[in-house]
Amino acid sequence: MTLAELKTGQKAVVSGFKEYSPLTQRIMQLGVLEDTVLEVLRRAPAGDPIEIRLLGYALSLRQSEASLIELRDIR
């Protein structure tokens, strides 16, 4: 399952990335890495982009970006 499918309010742990690119490298530099715990806080009106919380801060990313992030341990 990817971050794009995670429901609002759910938490999960990052398990990997769908691809490697400058974009995913940037996502990693923001702390979204294997074993990082994150939570979907909310979605914008059209369901996209989404807002997540990790490492004590809030980050917004688009569905297309979220779909690159694979998850495990969904809670």
Partner: peptide
């Protein structure tokens, strides 16, 4: 390339 929308939502 479509720029990313990685944006912090500061408190």
């Amino acid at each position: 390339p479509t720029p990313s929308f990685l944006m912090e939502l500061p408190p």
